[in-house]
Structures are given as C-alpha cells and as structure tokens.
Design a protein around this nucleic acid. Structure first.
Lengths: 243, 243
DNA sequence: GAGTGGTCTAGACCACGGT
DNA sequence: CCGTGGTCTAGACCACTCC
C-alpha cells in the first residue's frame, strides 16, 4: 500500500533535518528543486513543507526561502494539550517511559440529567442525559490527578461502570460509535478544593492545575466535558505556534 | 485592494455559521456547490474550509460532508498560549476589557554571557551575549505575574533599559530588526520560589503557574527565552485541536 | 531585476460513507 | 451504487526579499 506522497516527502525531509543534512538557520532547497527531486508537483511539495512548518521544524519566508529552525533542548515533560486519548495517551510520549504503572480508580459513576448549573459548566443542553464520572489517576501508585467527566449518554449506548474502569476511547472504538473530531481546552491554575485535598497527594501544596477539555464527535456534537485537576510539579504541557 | 479569495470565503462562511444560516450539527453545502457560489475552484474553497476547521468551527468527514460543530459557552478567560505579543497582547482579547491598568516594573536589566547553566535553560549557545530582564506585570496595580527573560543580544542591537520599560516587540518592529516566526511553549504548575513570594501577591498560595516560551526569528534563530510565573486563579489559556 | 514563496485555476482520479 | 471529501497534476500570475 503506497503512502501519501506528501507524507513521504515530509518524513524524508524531517529525517534530513534531524541528521543535519540541512543545518539550522540555513535554507532548504527551493520548492522547484524539491519538486524535481521527488518528481511531484510544487503543490505536493508545499503540503509537505506546510506540515514541517506546523510541527515547528522550518519556517517559510516569502522571497527568501524555507529556513530550518534551531532545535530546543527539552527535558522532563509529561503530557500535551494536543492529546485526544486523555490519560491513556500518556504512554505514547517517549519522555514518559520512566512511568512504571498507570492505574485508574473509578471513585464515582452516575447517570444524571443536565440541569441549568451543569449546562452552564459543560455547554451540554438542559435535560440531556449524561454519565458523570470521577476517576482518580494513579502514577506508580500515587494519586496525582483526578478527572471529573461528563459524557453525553446518547453518544455512549450501553456504557457501564465496568467500561469506565478501562478507556472510554477504547470503548468508542470497539463499538464503532463515532470518531473524535476536535477538542477545545482551557488550562489554568486554581486553589485546591476540599475534594482535591481528600483524594490527591498534595502534601502541603494548596493549588492544583486544571485542564478542561470539550470534545466533539465527527457528527458535530459536543460529547465530553472533562476537568482534570492535577498535583503541581509533575506535569507539563507542550505547545507550538507559527505566524 | 482586493483581499485574498480564500480569506473572503472563510469570513463569509464564518459569519453565516455564527448567524445560524448553517445550524450546528448540520452539514455545509458540498465543496462543488461552494465553488459555484463563490465562482472559484474547489481548491480555493478547500483552503477556506481548512481555515474554519483549524479554528474549530467545522469538521470535515470524508464521504459525508463538512459538519458545523456546536459552540462552547466560554466565560472568564484572560490569555492564550498562541500569543506572540507577550504581555502587551493581552489587550487584544475582548474578554480582557475589564482590566483597567496594565503596567510593567523592570526589576532587573543586565547584559550577560551565556554559561553552561543558562545554556541548558535557554537552549542558547555558550558564550552568546544576552540581555537578562526581570519584569513584574501589574494588573490594576497588583503584581500578578513576573517574567524572567533572556534575549540574544545580537538580535537586539542598541537595546537599552529604557526600551525594556516598553514593549520589546514594539522595539523590534520600530527598528525593523526581524519578524517573529514561531514559538514553542511549556506550561506547568510549580511550587512558589522565595523570589515569587517576594514579588508576587500570592497571599497564602504556595504555587505558581509557569509558562516558558522559546521564540524564533524568521532567520531561524532562537532569540527569546521567557519564563512567566503567575499567581493562580487569575489566568486561563485556551487551546484547540482537531484530528 | 532575479529569485523566492503565495495564490489560484481547471482539470483528474482515489477512498470512504451511506444507500 | 452514488456522493462526498482527499490527493495530485500542470500550468499561470502575483508579492515579497535581496542585490
């Protein structure tokens, strides 16, 4: 099965940048030459370059060329906001290999009706049915994060407490329910609540990190609202933007 | 002066989505029809749709169509990681109109040489010259955030303490030094340092939010390293991803 | 003015979703 | 099966940077 052309070109150029075939602060060959080299149109080359730019490896300047950006030395980092897989997705970061055990305790599982207050919180509609879950996340046995989640019930037919012990996203895939289309997030730092102190290993710390996610199905429905509250000094989120 | 075609199409569709000409969870007209309507090729329509998708308004599903996503009700929010303008850029968020006064105290201004320790921190090279700045950010007179910044000296010719009182980015524009190409960021929550307690209005809080930014010039040079440490309960960061 | 990336056209064929 | 978005080609012209 042949890969997409622009993906192949993207991967080839990426490897060449990482092995210093193209030095930081120098320019890539011009688009015309890359077209010739890979035997594709300029348009296809441009899609590969766009991808490199979105990932932060290069930057295109009109009239000058495509410049290779200097790398950043990064050290300890645990998760990213660009992560559709929630808690389970942590495994996919190579930086996280040092974590031995990832476990989940389902502290609460309820089927509820959305009232005005929860509607304002979650952006769901009043009188929607939803599942409410409280899940404690254990890293090598330590309770470092807790998720408060609302899932629209009509999107999760047949969902049970047992399913909640595993991965919600695995359940969605296994039952072919829908694809995840997009998510919005709000990240902040807030004072610890009484509940945070009860369940998280905060020690003397009196604040927590808060990451709120709104997740969409590919039918355009908002289907998940999750607030993750986490213990300081253990997590970091990566970002990248270009202009 | 005529605008870019795909930008015009993007803006038109965006307005129509926001005024409910196209309802959430329904589909947009197919690309062929939009081509006909705007009298452009499908390719140009697709670029407009891509932009809507990147902004989180729609989502395209192969074989089905382009779906309008339900909106999220958002409330108090103060800044975003996707913000090249640093502190000064806060003004551009409509949500922030309630802030009366934004001021900066330059607590420290030094010209330094990068040693091994700062090289590891900033990803600059050893023996580079750099400016080190400590700037306290005042919101309506309250010290709610502090920036620890390193700027490569060779990128900021003639930069003085007086310039640091204003906007570094204004200085770059005024002197036509370069364009900002991209930035990486690392966001986390950490225990408050002694310095944090001295300068920030933390009260009894013993944590701060930390936002580290690496900023690139359009020549591919890393030129700024800034860690912003901020008081909890005052700031939020927005994000969006699609898959 | 020469060289670069940015925009746009007018087609073609493929891959997936739903019937 | 049909209709949809996804990929790709082969060209053209414009806008910007740098000499």
């Amino acid at each position: 099965m042949p890969k997409k052309l622009y993906t192949e070109i993207y991967e080839t150029l990426k490897k060449e940048i990482q092995t210093n075939v193209y030095q930081p602060k120098s320019s890539l060959p011009r688009e015309e030459d890359l077209s010739a080299r890979f035997d594709v149109t300029r348009n296809t080359v441009r899609r590969a370059l766009k991808q490199l730019q979105e990932e932060g490896l290069v930057y295109a300047v009109k009239g000058r060329g495509v410049v290779v950006l200097e790398p950043v030395r990064s050290d300890q980092v645990v998760f990213s906001a660009n992560n559709s897989e929630g808690f389970q997705g942590l495994r996919s970061f190579p930086q996280n290999k040092f974590i031995q055990e990832l476990d989940t305790d389902v502290l609460s599982f309820k089927e509820i009706m959305i009232d005005e207050k929860t509607a304002n919180l979650t952006s769901f509609n009043i009188n929607d049915k939803a599942f409410y879950l409280e899940r404690l996340r254990l890293f090598d046995g330590k309770g470092l994060a807790i998720d408060h989640s609302y899932f629209r019930a009509d999107a999760l037919k047949g969902f049970t407490r047992e399913d909640a012990e595993g991965s919600v996203y695995q359940y969605i895939r296994d039952n072919n329910l829908f694809k995840v289309a997009a998510q919005r997030s709000i990240s902040s730092v807030v004072s610890a609540s009484q509940r945070d102190n009860e369940v998280l290993e905060l020690g003397s710390l009196n604040c927590v990190g808060s990451l709120i996610k709104f997740v969409y199905t590919d039918a355009g429905s908002l289907f998940e609202y999750t607030e993750t509250r986490y213990v300081p000094n253990n997590f970091a989120m990566l970002g990248f933007q270009y202009y």
